[in-house]
Nucleic acid binder design. Structure first.
Lengths: 339, 339
DNA sequence: TCCGAATCCTAGAACGTTCTAGTAGACGCC
DNA sequence: GGCGTCTACTAGAACGTTCTAGGATTCGGA
């Protein structure tokens, strides 16, 4: 009841273990007829190579270690793209999750023990010195987190551009009174705020510019809503979807018509934002592109091929749903169909 | 720049490789003084055992293979509990995800190659014959999926009880006209329907019993809402949260007051159901308990200890939020505060 | 006829562990 | 003083693979 090994296949096919290894790897050095026969035997015995043993000998594991956080739905979406990209590059993924009771250190240590060849870290919170320490042992790519270390690669979204697009969209609908609910000191918040400011300037709306302090959670958005009631804008761009949802909730409870009276744009295209009940216009990160770049960077470092930028900044795009429309009183611009 | 191995530590400490192995594993057979010295050297050289090599030799990997689906937020929640339980039992987890472009077969094959000692599969869709085939090679525990094979272990929620609890809650609030939007032929749907029927019978409400055909998605809930408008109940239990959300959306668009005119109960306690904007009363599966049982079952099979049931059925519990209240016109029962 | 090269294949070491079998020395006991 | 037993330790094989070096066999050409 043992597993079948190379030796079993070799015995059965009447060849040496080494030759079976050659055939299984598709390496040159075996005759066509023998190759065929060995493959046939392997199939019959249901032979599956043992990745651990392979790694032990060859040093190479063809393994990319991925750290993600189970609490972040977005991370899970990125996994899909990462599997695709890794598969194409001939690498496998080893996943290690961060949970409320399992910290980043634990997750990364496990990846290291698994002997993966590079680390892909989803928005790590550890100090950049810790990242640099890791980078001394293995190539490290951080996603959704800017790091100023020469030896750490970065793949992230152009957050300023995302906010800019949101404002462009609103301005295009005719809005002039556009506020921004920001994310304070959180990663990405400064850039999103900056993008808002730049876009407002570009549209000649600097006179209205209004930034309300917010945060990452629903309650932050709700608090911001209360502040906005003082001098209501006709549109708001919010730091993220969760915060936008909290804001939306307060608005609807106060019978403010969204998007009739007020347009709202979120950020992240979280899965819940496409629920009919929320139907939030939002800025989507280009998951597939980011995943592709992350794998490309990791492979670059592993295989030590020159070229490519240390930091890859991917453009986001706006997903228009039902929370944005022309401002009240604007002629001839109906809300977009929410189909 | 090689990794430090047992041999390095052994050289440095002036003992044999075998002894270092003994010390590192905490196995008996080393003197206290030597043990201390070896540990000190290991710490100094930053020695980390190579799990693959260990596995290769010992046959044991202390690894549980987990297959989950990135599209299912609930799965990710369960991971947290699984890490906890596995850690306590002295096992590590290997994760393999199912994505839109990565099927169950691929995910499971990778787990097999990783030489994990048992498979924990989150609501697998593969036919039970395929599960049985897997079970011939490795202990298999399926979660959230009933399987009638003697050699496949099952950990799942008592779905009938969950529906029953939902109806109990509504009946307790004074509702008599309680409908059920079902999940058709989906796994769990039959039981949830049955639980509804049993609870209705128990509360003497058989005369109203009303089952509307639904499904797993928002659009299914929305369709069901249209049907319900014909002869509106005062409360509905819905197959799952997503469907309940679709239903909620139609209701609110038609200015039906929830929970004033109509109470709604979902199922699953999906993360979005606790958004202030949705605030859905729902049936929550006991994630920690399920994870604990799954690990316990797997370890039982691996270590071949007798006892324990093949199928573990965990009781769910109701999470009361803002979509349920007393029926219209009921005296003295205000809606519960929504926290 | 003989040599060199190419092709196909094999033996055996190596990877970093754990495991089995055993050795050396101390100690107790009659 | 000889024997058994215990403790602390070690040598070397083994796990399933890949890699290095090399052995046959064939073939072409001088």
């Amino acid at each position: 009841m043992r597993r079948t090994t190379l030796a079993d296949v070799a015995d059965e096919a009447g060849v040496s273990v080494a030759l079976v290894s050659i055939v299984m790897r598709g390496a040159p050095g075996a005759g066509a007829a023998t190759r065929e026969r060995v493959l046939e035997v392997a199939r019959r015995l249901d032979y599956r190579p043992d990745t651990r043993a392979r790694l032990l000998r060859s040093g190479r594991s063809q393994l990319l270690g991925v750290m993600f956080d189970v609490r972040h739905p977005f991370h899970v979406d990125v996994l899909t793209g990462l599997y695709d990209a890794a598969g194409q590059a001939g690498y496998q993924l080893t996943l290690s999750a961060v949970t409320p009771r399992r910290d980043e250190q634990t997750a990364v240590t496990e990846l290291m023990q698994d002997r993966c060849e590079a680390l892909v870290l989803f928005s790590p919170r550890m100090p950049s010195a810790a990242l640099a320490a890791l980078a001394e042992q293995r190539p490290v790519v951080t996603m959704m987190r800017a790091v100023r270390r020469r030896d750490v690669d970065v793949v992230r979204t152009d957050d300023a551009l995302g906010s800019h697009q949101a404002v462009d969209h609103l301005a295009g609908l005719g809005h002039t009174r556009i506020a921004h609910v920001d994310g304070g000191a959180l990663p990405g918040a400064a850039e999103r705020r900056l993008g808002y400011q730049q876009a407002m300037a570009q549209h000649g709306l600097t006179s209205y510019e209004k930034i309300v302090s917010g945060g990452p959670g629903e309650e932050d958005g709700a608090r911001a809503a209360a502040v906005l009631f003082g001098d209501p804008p006709t549109a708001v761009t919010v730091f993220n979807d969760l915060s936008a949802t909290g804001l939306l909730d307060v608005l609807r409870r106060h019978r403010v018509d969204v998007p009739g009276d007020l347009s709202v744009v979120g950020y992240d295209d979280s899965s819940f934002s496409r629920l009919a009940h929320i139907d939030l216009t939002t800025v989507a990160q280009d998951i597939a592109a980011m995943a592709g770049h992350a794998v490309a960077r990791a492979v670059h470092r592993i295989e030590d091929t020159p070229g490519g930028d240390r930091e890859t900044i991917v453009a986001p795009h706006l997903v228009i749903r039902g929370t944005t429309a022309a401002p009240p009183g604007a002629p001839g611009s109906d809300p977009l169909p929410t189909g």
